[in-house]
Design a protein around this nucleic acid. Structure first.
Lengths: 201, 201
DNA sequence: CCATGATGTGACCGCCCGGTCACTTCTGCA
DNA sequence: TGCAGAAGTGACCGGGCGGTCACATCATGG
């Protein structure tokens, strides 16, 4: 968390710092990002940065928080949506895409953040995953109870699959920008690979 | 590619170098891995390393090649297997798991390699992905023609999903070591989330 | 106007990095 | 045995890093 001094700054200076930091952490993962470059980019002395943040990690986590705050504003719309689990999931992926498109730097920050498997950030990461898992599990249980979802499936495996596919989609938003592709990917998950005897459409 | 000098070395020295390099590149991604630590670990002078390899990147790509060579020896068994596409896929995931279990350092090297989205390694990475995609596409087309696989699905989306799930499984082999879990994940992909009217078992 | 505490600064510290090169040591053949 | 070329070496280079600190500057209220 930033020190109080940071919040006492004139807004435009504060935002210049944020902008420079976001650009740097979007471009390189934590370990490779350069604090020196950040202070040069926003024109403050390096010592000043340490008036505002405890260290590089402190600044980084603050930026990551900002990014996830923005992202939450998008994806939370999905859960508010009326409809079955499939339309919620479609909306979830679509909102993730909208976030990536409208806040590309934040998007890259979040991407680089959960790529970071090693290092001291692992704990924060796992915490977020669990919270998302429980959100998803609620929807899934409900849909199973209603008979909309295959009861033979292992909920843990279902979450695993959706998490993996969502992650990969988000990872490749740059390349995969066809709206229809989301739907086709979701069709694969919904219908399954094995041919269906009933009319599936 | 290493220089000729490297292959002229006595085997035990050559393997000591390989061992040290594998350990280092298993522990950290390319940019964070330290050539200095490698030469210290295997007890040769830093200058000597430059008799064997052009630079750090040359050494790294050599190690990555070794790792993928080993991995191919495992996963290629899957395609040789008799049976439908689902049993081939199961075997593929299982062999990937066996590789990770029996060659954990190589496994970590490959993992860290295709995590590397930025940097100059991207081209090599994409090449590998395309070759795997075409292998998979062959099997998929065949299975669709035989009516074993849902004809309504987009083959590109199918590959995308399987690739994503495979990647995530491989990423988490450390945590997910239950044999049954593979099967349950494959069930999700095979059957799909939507409830089936026919008896699915 | 000055005193005081908060804020701003950039030269500097120690560390580690990939890579180089003048030099030594080894090896095998004439 | 001598000698040429291959192989081995480690001190050294320039550069970048995160972080520090003695000092300069500023804002405030007595």
């Amino acid at each position: 968390m930033p020190k109080q001094t940071f919040f006492n700054l004139e807004p435009e200076k504060r935002e210049a710092i944020i902008k420079a930091a976001v650009e740097e952490f979007a471009q390189a993962p934590f370990e490779q990002a350069s604090l020196t470059k950040i202070v040069e980019k926003c024109g403050i002395a390096k010592g000043s940065m340490y008036q505002y943040f405890r260290d590089k990690r402190d600044l980084y986590l603050y930026v990551v928080d900002l990014a996830y705050e923005q992202k939450r504003a998008y994806v939370s719309k999905a859960f508010a949506r009326e409809g079955d689990i499939f339309s919620v999931l479609e909306e979830y992926y679509y909102q993730s895409y909208a976030f990536a498109r409208e806040h590309p730097l934040f998007h890259q920050v979040t991407n680089k953040f959960w790529d970071n498997k090693g290092g001291a950030l692992r704990l924060e990461l796992e915490k977020g995953r669990l919270s998302r898992a429980s959100d998803f599990a609620k929807f899934l249980d409900e849909a199973m109870a209603q008979g909309k979802v295959n009861k033979d499936l292992d909920p843990e495996a279902v979450f695993f699959v959706y998490h993996a596919v969502g992650k990969e989609l988000i990872d490749h938003f740059d390349q995969v920008h066809s709206d229809g592709f989301f739907k086709r990917v979701l069709d694969v998950l919904r219908l399954g690979l094995a041919a269906r005897e009933e009319q599936a459409k």
